[in-house]
């Protein structure tokens, strides 16, 4: 039997909003450590990896590791039926062909129960090497979302270049060009407003803004976003997920292959 209860059900709603437009179908790998998902988009240009730790749930039981293959847009539609303050419980028998979702309203007066069919997905896994990155930038996630949205008006690709204490996003297209320059902040008064850059060597790389704007749908999950870049390896965009009492619940990590000169 697999059963996972999350009092802060809104986290699960936001995770599905953050991945459903990028990946149609994916499998949740559930083990005693927690729930994880890894899937590429259909073009194999980007990949999303989600991790939710077992001890981040309010109740977590996983007798045997199970793989729950699902259509994510269906799951997202069901999760839209849950209120933002609802407790969400996922339940699946070990050899079942469906998963049950239970939504309990805060005042315990209302309980909803939905069943979603499971799918047999022969998902291919990618081995992602743990490489040290030349550049890591931590910045406010809403700033990253706005920059990607603004620059997509100008062109379909952004060139990210990093110096010691600043990061530059540049785009150009038929109507013209645009650049956004962010300087590293000193000790910002609010940590979530800070921009911090650690650079081993300068980089300059280009990426398709279409995918970055998909990634930015994870913005509601985390006040900060972390960008990791190295020459000629995919970009990593990571949103760490903490719950209300600030403990680490997991992360959403996106990988994006670069665009290179012909």
């Amino acid at each position: 039997m697999f059963e996972a209860k999350l009092i802060q059900g809104a986290i699960l709603k936001k995770i599905l909003d953050a991945i459903k437009d990028l990946v149609n179908e994916a499998s949740w790998d559930c083990s005693s450590q927690g729930m994880s998902l890894q899937a590429m988009d259909t073009s194999h240009v980007s990949l999303v990896a989600v991790q939710m730790k077992a001890d981040g749930f309010d109740k977590y039981r996983c007798d045997r590791s199970v793989t729950l293959g699902m259509n994510l847009s269906s799951l997202s539609k069901i999760l839209k039926c849950a209120g933002n303050d609802d407790t969400i419980t996922l339940k699946a028998p070990d050899d079942g062909d469906k998963i049950t979702l239970v939504f309990e309203a805060k005042n315990e007066s209302e309980t909803s129960e939905y069943e979603v069919k499971l799918m047999n997905l022969d998902s291919e896994y990618l081995g992602i090497p743990d490489t040290p990155y030349s550049v890591n930038v931590k910045m406010p996630s809403h700033k990253f979302q706005r920059i990607c949205r603004d620059l997509q008006q100008i062109g379909d690709a952004v060139t990210i270049s990093c110096a010691k204490d600043s990061i530059r996003f540049a785009a150009k297209g038929d109507l013209g060009s645009g650049t956004v320059n962010l300087c590293q902040t000193a000790s910002a008064d609010k940590p979530e407003d800070s921009v911090s850059i650690s650079m081993q060597e300068p980089i300059i790389q280009s990426f398709a803004l279409k995918y970055l704007n998909h990634f930015a749908k994870a913005t509601p999950l985390s006040p900060q976003v972390s960008l990791s870049l190295s020459p000629d390896v995919p970009l990593v965009v990571e949103y760490s997920i903490t719950d209300d009492d600030g403990s680490d619940f997991g992360y959403i990590r996106y990988y994006l292959a670069p665009k290179i000169d012909e």
């Binding site: 194999h44 240009v45 291919e124 090497p129 690709a157 995919p234 292959a257 665009k259």
Partner: peptide
């Protein structure tokens, strides 16, 4: 013009 690379060129597919 820039060519879009694929993840399979960087990560090993199992």
């Amino acid at each position: 013009l820039k060519k879009q690379k694929l993840l399979n060129e960087y990560f090993h597919v199992f």
